[in-house]
C-alpha cells in the first residue's frame, strides 16, 4: 500500500552504506573493548581472556583519585550548569520579547561554536591572573570552567521543553490564584522536569568527557580520568587503558539509558 511513496530504504546501495557507517562507528570501540580482556600486554595481539587489566585499574590509586575527581567535578558542574540553564531558558522563553533577546540567545549558544582550544587558552590566562592575585589553587577553577561550558548543553533540552509547553497553563494557574512562585512550583516545574533531567545528564556526560579545557585549567595533581589517561598514553599503552575506557563507556551509556527510560515513563 505504501509502494507508490518514496522510501530511502529501497534505494540501491542503501544497506551497504548503512553497514559501512555502522562498522566505522563501532568497530574501533568494539576492538577497544575486546582487548581490554587481553591476557597479554599488547593492545593489538590477542593472547587469551583475562580480567587482569580491570583488576589492575581498580587497584590503581591514581585511577581511583582521578575518577573520583571527575565524578566530583561533573556532579557539581552539571547541577550548577542546569540551574543556570533553567533560569536562562525561563528568561528567554517566558518573557515578552525584549530588545536584545536574540543577542542573549546567541551569547548563550556561541560557546558551542567557539573552538574549545580558544576557550581553554582564554581560561588558562584568565585563571592564572586570579591564581596570582589570590593564591587559591583548588578545584573551584575546574568546577567554574566545566559549569561554564556545560551551560549551553543543559540549556538546549530545557529550552526545547519550555517551547513545546503550552504557556497558557501558567496563565491558567495565575487565573486560579497561584502567585508566580506557586505557579512555577506547581505547574511549570513539574512539566519542565524531563527537560531539566535531560539537561542535567547531558551536562554531566559532557563534563565527564572533557579533556582540552581540563588539561589547560588544572593545577598540579588535579587529574581527571580523561587527563590521567592522556598522560598515561603518552608513555606506555597497556590494555589497562582499554579497561578504563570500557568502564567509562559503560557509565556514559548507563546515564543516557537511564535518562531515556525516565523520560519515556513520564510521557
Amino acid at each position: 500500500m505504501a509502494k507508490a511513496t518514496f522510501s530511502v530504504r529501497r534505494q540501491t546501495g542503501f544497506a551497504t552504506i548503512a553497514l559501512v557507517c555502522f562498522v566505522m562507528l563501532y568497530a574501533p570501540i568494539l576492538t577497544l573493548m575486546i582487548y581490554s580482556f587481553n591476557d597479554g600486554t599488547s593492545v593489538a595481539i590477542w593472547e587469551g581472556f583475562s580480567w587482569r587489566w580491570y583488576e589492575r585499574a581498580a587497584a590503581n590509586e591514581q585511577v581511583q583519585e582521578s575518577a573520583l575527581l571527575s565524578l566530583k567535578i561533573a556532579s557539581i558542574a552539571a547541577v550548577l550548569a542546569t540551574i543556570f540553564a533553567t533560569m536562562a531558558a525561563l528568561a528567554t522563553t517566558r518573557t515578552r520579547p525584549y530588545r536584545g533577546l536574540t543577542a542573549i540567545f546567541a551569547a548563550i549558544n556561541t560557546p558551542l561554536m567557539v573552538p574549545e582550544i580558544v576557550t581553554a587558552v582564554a581560561l588558562l590566562i584568565f585563571f592564572a591572573s586570579i591564581k596570582v592575585a589570590t593564591g587559591y589553587t583548588g578545584i573551584a577553577y575546574l568546577v567554574a570552567a566545566h559549569t561554564a561550558f556545560c551551560i549551553p548543553f543543559a540549556y538546549l533540552p530545557i529550552r526545547a521543553r519550555l517551547e513545546s509547553m503550552d504557556a497558557t497553563l501558567e496563565i491558567a494557574a495565575a487565573d486560579l490564584y497561584a502567585t508566580p512562585w506557586r505557579a512555577f512550583r506547581r505547574v511549570t516545574f513539574p512539566l519542565l522536569w524531563p527537560g531539566i533531567v535531560a539537561g542535567l545528564m547531558l551536562a554531566f556526560v559532557i563534563s565527564l568527557d572533557d579533556v582540552v579545557i581540563t588539561e589547560f585549567v588544572k593545577s598540579a595533581g588535579q587529574d581527571t580520568l580523561p587527563t590521567y589517561m592522556l598522560g598515561q598514553l603518552r608513555r606506555i599503552v597497556t590494555p589497562e587503558m582499554n579497561a578504563i575506557s570500557t568502564v567509562f563507556l559503560g557509565i556514559s551509556v548507563m546515564v543516557v539509558a537511564l535518562f531515556f527510560f525516565m523520560t519515556r515513563k513520564k510521557n
Binding site: A172, A174, D175, Y177, A178
Partner: peptide, 14 residues
C-alpha cells in the same frame, strides 16, 4: 490575575 475573583475557561481548556 491571581488577585482578581475572576476565573477563565480557556479556548484550548489549558
Amino acid at each position: 490575575p491571581f488577585k482578581r475573583p475572576v476565573n477563565t475557561v480557556f479556548q484550548n481548556y489549558a
